[in-house]
């Protein structure tokens, strides 16, 4: 064993230099050319940063489109899911409560229209997206609160819908923060 210790020590030192210093510095350098410069892409309103494009936000104000439930209340200093099991009775009761709450705040919406993702928590607690269906069932409420035409809101939702990758792979989705930024721009 002794024959290997000294060479191993030296090799370890060199590899720490390569893998833990040179490599991340190289990537940081390359990332300077990327959108956001490797610091994360931000969104601005009137020159002021209002959030990160990738990170969901907590919308408690009903005049905004709301995102999915979050186990960390969208505080991106941390991240996690609820880790509730599918058969957990407390969990199922809380999903039921979210459905009931949603129905109270969105009169005229039928229970069967509520997409399950709007009443179940995301994996990271920071999910920035909802499905088009989840946006559309909120139109009625927002139109009423903001005195806007439902047709205009529908147009906005459709414009903000991102197609699957290359139109082939994955899901259609809407970034809630981007949608709400555009929503604020709509005139009454």
């Amino acid at each position: 064993m002794k024959t290997y210790i000294i060479p191993s020590l030296k090799l370890t030192g060199l590899l720490i230099l390569i893998c833990s210093a040179l490599y991340p510095l190289l990537i940081a350098g390359i990332a300077k050319a990327a959108p956001g410069g490797g610091k994360g892409e931000t969104l601005e309103v009137n020159g002021k940063v209002v959030g990160y494009a990738a990170i969901g936000q907590n919308f408690t104000d009903e005049a905004y489109f709301i995102g999915r439930p979050s186990a960390v209340d969208y505080n991106a200093a941390g991240s996690c899911g609820s880790n509730k099991g599918a058969s957990n009775p407390d969990y199922l009761a809380s999903v039921q409560a979210r459905i009931d709450t949603f129905l109270v705040h969105n009169p005229g919406v039928d229970r069967s229209q509520i997409p399950a993702e709007l009443v179940t928590a995301s994996g990271s607690g920071l999910d920035p997206d909802i499905t088009p269906a989840a946006a559309k069932i909120q139109i009625k409420r927002i139109a009423k609160l903001r005195h806007l035409e439902e047709a205009d809101l529908l147009k906005l939702v459709e414009k903000q819908t991102e197609k699957p990758l290359l139109g082939l792979f994955g899901v259609e989705k809407i970034n809630v923060l981007k949608l709400n930024i555009e929503l604020n721009k709509l005139k009454q």
């Binding site: 509730k84 999903v95 997409p115 399950a116 993702e117 995301s122 994996g123 499905t131």
Partner: peptide, 19 residues
């Protein structure tokens, strides 16, 4: 959750991300 009458066309989404 199907029994609660909501639409699960996305599948089971607890702990999953929309994207």
């Amino acid at each position: 959750i199907t029994q609660m009458g909501v639409n699960q066309s996305m599948g089971s989404m607890e702990g999953k991300e929309v994207r």
